[in-house]
Design a protein around this nucleic acid. Structure first.
Length: 478
DNA sequence: ATGTAC
């Protein structure tokens, strides 16, 4: 089959015409760059952008971020908004790891203070935060799980694992409305019982980082990023087996022809439900409950990171800068053709990036816009950005979520020797603790696109503004 | 991503 034709609109914006397929209800729109556009031919992800555009009630365009790659049904790096009345909600548009996301902790430590203890603290983090496939923590009670699913972060506050400031600095204050614990299967809850505060595997990580560059001192200062050399800690994980089971349950039930289901004309993986149907409401409730679990999971890790650092640096300030979701569907108001409309925006491997002008999100950061946290690969850099004014009408206020894979995991395994990866990182002053050799090869820096180029793309497209660049020094991988 | 298989 011939490839999908991409039309260059600007250096940073590429279109897929609606004439590509008669079933498309809106065009495709890919944010990329001259440096990155070549990767779009590597996989089936553009076909997935086309497939998403066929869903009922889709508004504007089927969009993708510069870190786009092949995913289940929807591409990873995909953004799709649906009319809240006539549109659909789709589990594949959220992904299997519901509320996968990023938390960033800032400290008042300078690298010079940390350096002598870097190996020891990284080892302690590796010990104190369970990681790896099937990793577990001490079990919580069944009543705790229901509380977590319904209420999110308040469970952490009540159990002395979150401060008021932590809650303020979490997207949606760590508590999604319309969360239905009852919509989640006993099997999903059982899997979640032993996974509170665990990192998981694959591209999930915990990283000690150093502020390398500040692009905007005013906004960085407001976020508590004050100087180069300042130590930060980044966490990337989601809702673990619980969220995965929720996605599995709903996709299976929908594909077995449940009432209110909307089948997709070409791809079963894009099965969905009318937003306003009973099934749509049930998935929304389950997704929001799983998202609450994700916020709690990351916060318990934040708590354990804080404890670990405090043991060596009892007087230092260790604060959550922000915790965000990059796999979620949210009900939001956006201006479409000059009028505000109620939409459900699916962001799968994409981050909310509202500007201060368009801000309808968390009060803590309404002054300068929504913080955007973009991890790169473990050998290069990560970024703090904010949503840029005007992005509301470009991408429903969204940005990318990472560097995006350049090589498949299998290809990475064949290409990179783990000992050489570890030596390469050590050469750059980065100390890695990983559960196994496989994850080291799979997550090799060479497996990912250049994060600096990805940041250039989202900046060039007018989605975000860079605030600070962070470089890794200590890495924990599952 | 994921008790990497119903």
């Amino acid at each position: 089959m011939a490839g999908i034709e991409l039309e260059r609109i600007t250096d940073y914006t590429y279109g897929i015409r609606q004439t590509t397929d008669v079933r498309m209800k809106v065009p495709g729109l890919v944010f990329s760059s001259p440096a990155l556009v070549k990767y779009l031919k590597n996989d089936q992800s553009l076909q997935q952008v086309v497939n998403v555009s066929m869903l009922p009630g889709i508004v504007g365009a089927s969009m993708a971020m510069p870190d786009i790659h092949w995913g289940y049904g929807f591409p990873i790096g995909g953004v799709a908004a649906f009319d809240a009345e006539d549109g659909v909600i789709s589990p594949g548009g959220v992904g299997y790891d519901i509320n996968c996301g990023v938390s960033l902790i800032r400290t008042d430590l300078h690298y010079d203070q940390l350096k002598p203890k870097l190996r020891q603290i990284t080892d302690n983090l590796f010990k104190n935060v369970p990681s790896g496939m099937g990793s577990t923590s001490s079990k919580v009670r069944q009543s705790d799980i229901d509380d977590i699913l319904k209420n999110g972060l308040s469970w952490c506050t009540e159990n002395n694992m979150a401060t008021k400031s932590d809650v303020m600095n979490t997207e949606e204050n760590g508590s999604m409305k319309y969360a239905m614990s009852d919509a989640i299967s006993a099997e999903a809850k059982k899997r979640g019982l032993k996974q509170i505060g665990t990192l998981g595997a694959g591209n999930h990580f915990l990283e000690i980082q150093i502020v390398d560059r500040i692009y905007d001192e005013k906004v960085a200062g407001y976020f508590g990023i004050k100087r180069t050399g300042q130590v930060t800690i980044m966490i990337h994980t989601g809702s673990r087996g619980l969220g995965h089971q929720v996605a599995t349950d709903f996709i299976r039930n929908m594909n077995s022809g449940e009432h209110d289901v909307v089948m997709h004309p070409v791809d079963r993986q894009l099965v969905s439900a009318k937003i306003n149907s009973k099934l749509g409401e049930k998935y929304t409730g389950a997704m929001n409950a799983a998202a609450n679990f994700g916020f709690v999971n990351r916060q318990v890790i934040v708590h354990n990171v804080r404890k670990t650092f405090s043991a060596d640096f009892p007087d230092s300030e260790i604060e959550l800068m922000y915790s965000l979701a990059h796999n979620i569907a949210k009900r939001e108001k956006h201006r479409v053709d000059g009028e505000y409309r109620d939409l459900v925006v699916h962001r799968k491997g994409a981050t909310r990036a509202f500007s201060s002008v368009d801000m309808t999100g968390d009060a803590a950061y309404s002054k300068y816009g929504h913080p955007v946290l973009i991890p790169g690969d473990m050998g290069t850099a990560s970024y703090i950005l904010v949503g840029k004014e005007g992005n509301d009408s470009i991408s429903f206020g969204s940005s990318c979520h990472g560097a995006g894979r350049k090589l498949s995991r299998k290809k990475s395994m064949e290409t990179f020797n783990s000992s050489e990866v570890i030596a390469g990182l050590a050469h750059k002053g980065i100390y890695l603790r990983a559960q196994n050799r496989q994850v080291v090869s799979e997550e090799a820096p060479g497996s990912y696109k250049d994060i600096d180029e990805v940041i250039d793309a989202v900046t060039g497209a007018g989605l975000t503004m860079p605030i600070a660049r962070l470089v890794p020094v200590g890495v924990v991988k599952g």
